[in-house]
């Protein structure tokens, strides 16, 4: 009984063990591997990321200068980020938000040799 009282008192005054999640969010750790994104302006479309990816969720088209990723197939291992020779691939520290439709990342950039710059297009669907 005495033991139980000590427990009750401790729990009464201790702060709660859980967070009130949507209101209170724990700040992410510095090197958490979260959402993957490509800084398309720097991308040279070498295809190293697509080659190294264990889940093969990235498709790169060198001629069309497009970079495609299926985030639902991505395993967030970060191998592509390390493989990128120009460091244009990054991972955010937070996870991808919940979505109701199947989203894919399709980015069109410009090949480095071409002088004029095309606008970046992000399509969903």
């Amino acid at each position: 009984m005495a033991k139980m009282t000590a427990n009750i008192l401790r729990n009464f005054f201790a702060k709660r063990a859980t967070r009130l999640y949507p209101i209170e969010v724990r700040p992410p750790f510095e090197n958490s591997r979260g959402e993957l994104y490509n800084d398309i302006d720097q991308c040279i479309f070498c295809g190293a990321c697509a080659l190294k990816c264990p889940s093969q969720c990235i498709t790169v088209d060198k001629d069309q200068a497009t970079w495609f990723c299926d985030p639902l197939a991505c395993v967030y291992c970060g191998v592509c980020v390390e493989a990128c020779p120009v460091h244009c691939l990054h991972q955010k520290t937070t996870y991808r938000p919940v979505c109701v439709t199947r989203e894919t990342i399709f980015q069109k950039g410009v090949l480095k040799e071409k002088p004029k710059k095309k606008a970046k297009v992000v399509a969903e669907g």
Partner: peptide, 20 residues
């Protein structure tokens, strides 16, 4: 998560050593 970047599937091993 703080040391490797992921909670469970930490993905730190590579052939030849570690990634972080």
């Amino acid at each position: 998560e703080a040391t490797t970047g992921a909670r469970v599937i930490v993905s730190v091993n590579v052939v030849g050593g570690l990634r972080c």
